[in-house]
Design a binder for these strands. Sequence first.
DNA 1: GCGCAATAGTTTGGTACAAAACTATTCTGC
DNA 2: GCAGAATAGTTTTGTACCAAACTATTGCGC
Lengths: 175, 175
Amino acid sequence: MVQPNLAARETERRDVPVPAATAGAVDFGPLANWIGFHLRLAQNASFQAFARRANGIDLRPGRFATLMLIGRNPGISQTALSRANRRDKSSLTPVLNDLARRKLIKRARDTEDRRSYRLMLTPAGEATLAKLTECAKEHERRLDELLGARDRDRFLEVLRRLIAGLPARGNGHSR
Amino acid sequence: MVQPNLAARETERRDVPVPAATAGAVDFGPLANWIGFHLRLAQNASFQAFARRANGIDLRPGRFATLMLIGRNPGISQTALSRANRRDKSSLTPVLNDLARRKLIKRARDTEDRRSYRLMLTPAGEATLAKLTECAKEHERRLDELLGARDRDRFLEVLRRLIAGLPARGNGHSR
DNA sequence: GCGCAATAGTTTGGTACAAAACTATTCTGC
DNA sequence: GCAGAATAGTTTTGTACCAAACTATTGCGC
């Protein structure tokens, strides 16, 4: 807990004015109780744990939601997908290019509105999605272990409240 | 509940053989109940809400934690800081360069170990930190409104459990 | 002392994202 | 029908991050 001085090892060192920082403990100040900070850490930890689990597969968690949304909504447009996934549509272009290059999705021009694409999974995409879904289920099971089923539900509900209640980019007043 | 103003206004388009995707509702499948997905959305929303609030100031939320940790731990080294902030040390270099360029922090070589720097705030850095802290307090108050004080505490506790329980990069045994 | 492992920080290369400017197509008012 | 607004997607630019390779300094074994 409280540090033995690493200075004392040597013979008498000079009385250096070392603050706690250099030793073990770091003072987080108000950070220690702030939601935002912990949200970042938790999201990060969850993301990395999932990525580690899905390591055998060639896709990272960011792509997973994309694949799932396409699989569940065949024919969806890029704009609708980007809204559902809460990512800017411009972020989607390179992701979809990559997924198409790997033959996991197909992009067909909409015959009625030739501006849009209609996205859908290829059989290979379905298979990859199934594998990732399995990884995600295990991941969620791990989270359930950590949280317990009852806490988990409340936790999810609170997350939803935050998501709905905080003004996202254009939210609050559409222009 | 959460019915963002999608383009649902003009739902009655022509009699296109449209799957649900193109119209208003998107099927999220299992995503709708997965913690990881909602963590990402919540973190994102919180981050953006904070950034919006701190708009007058020239610093974004990423820098805020850095400044706070330096302010609370004067003389801290870059490595210790990166560990506390859970960011790779290489990410820190450009951030600190920028903060130093703006005269918000000072970097002094440690006289006893000339490899390390000892970081501390300048008076301008203290002032900026104070302003940001005020923004963060308001932000947290907003979160409290959304969550209620009781839920908030449980929520924070659950976040901590996640952070501690999920294997971070090198985690499992820190030295 | 001398070499070698460990440590502090930087550099390089790559990924993921957003915002704004751009192209192509469709819709609306008249 | 045609000018201009709206919409779908792409490109460009800039930020934040990580991981691995690198430099400089320190500590360790002998």
